[in-house]
């Protein structure tokens, strides 16, 4: 858990957050603290599916090498938000966005930006594990490197082991590397997908409810894994499970109806939230 001092609450910075009747203006304490490197600097970010607005003027700074959890009731825009962080919406016809979204200072939606290059740095793990069905375990891990032109066998071999070790899967599969990826158990498949993402050496990992299809033991393994990942990676994880957010994140953002309601240190969100809606949600009174 974060050891950062809890600082006094200051209204959100430059963001001219529209003050609607309800829900109220996002309350974001002054996280991240000054010294922290910012991975995502997002300002007034709105998104539409056709006519339907799914995100409303989100302003948030997500720190590098921290675990940030996104919580909120179904349909509040968690996945939509996460998928805009690596431009996964590019392929959905009819999507439109406004505002700015910077990743380590670079505008992700700036003119001429190559979404493929963005995704190489910002990886994603999905709700349902999805190893490629025609590929072996090893091929699954290495496909990203291979298709981006890496031919050096020693590098591939090294990256294979390194990625599987980081995903805490090496010991379980080191003798089965040529078996199909789909022959693994659900939890192993999800860790294989994490290894696959790590193999292309991103600096940020997005996870959209990565444990919602897993049993408690497999979930615990993934949560342990997230703890080790935060040393090197910026992790943004969407979760339905409040205990999970409380257990494994440093910061928590509460979304409701397409708005960011509150963003603060996880401990604060779960023990002493500023916003009554956050309080109602984390105490299980709705959602």
């Amino acid at each position: 858990m974060s050891t950062l001092p809890e600082t006094a609450r200051i209204p959100a910075g430059a963001a001219p957050v529209r003050v609607a009747a309800a829900p109220a203006t996002a309350s974001t304490a002054d996280v991240p603290v000054e010294a922290e490197e910012v991975a995502f600097d997002i300002r007034n970010f709105s998104m539409w599916y056709g006519q339907r607005q799914a995100l409303q003027e989100i302003t948030i700074k997500i720190s590098a090498r921290k675990v940030t959890a996104i919580i909120g009731p179904s349909g509040c825009g968690k996945s939509t938000f996460l998928r805009s962080l690596n431009r996964m919406h590019d392929l959905t016809p009819g999507t439109r966005l406004e505002g700015t979204l910077r990743h380590f200072g670079n505008d992700l939606y700036g003119p001429g930006i190559d979404a493929t290059a963005v995704r190489r740095r910002v990886g994603m793990v999905f709700q349902k594990s999805n190893p490629f069905p025609t590929m072996s375990i090893a091929d699954n891990v290495l496909v990203g490197l291979r298709l981006n032109g890496m031919r050096d066998r020693s590098v591939l071999q090294e990256r294979l082991e390194q990625s599987l070790r980081m995903a805490a899967l090496w010991d379980e599969v080191k003798d089965l590397l040529n078996r199909p990826g789909t022959s693994l158990s659900g939890g192993q498949q999800q860790r294989l997908c994490i290894a696959r993402s790590l193999a292309v050496q991103p600096d940020t990992l997005l996870m959209d409810e990565p444990c919602s299809a897993l049993d408690p033991i497999a979930t615990a393994k993934i949560e342990d894994l997230i703890q080790t990942l935060r040393e090197k990676y910026t992790v943004v994880i969407v979760t339905h499970n409040m205990q999970q957010a409380a257990r494994c994140s440093d910061r928590t953002a509460f979304f409701y109806m397409g708005r960011l309601i509150e963003f603060d240190n996880t401990r604060k969100i779960f023990t002493n939230p500023s916003n009554p809606q956050t309080e109602a949600y984390v105490s299980g009174r709705f959602g």
Partner: peptide
């Protein structure tokens, strides 16, 4: 399934 396309795109592989 669309999920394979998304998984591959998320690895930074060209479309």
């Amino acid at each position: 399934p669309q999920s394979y396309r998304e998984a591959a795109l998320a690895l930074g592989i060209a479309r």
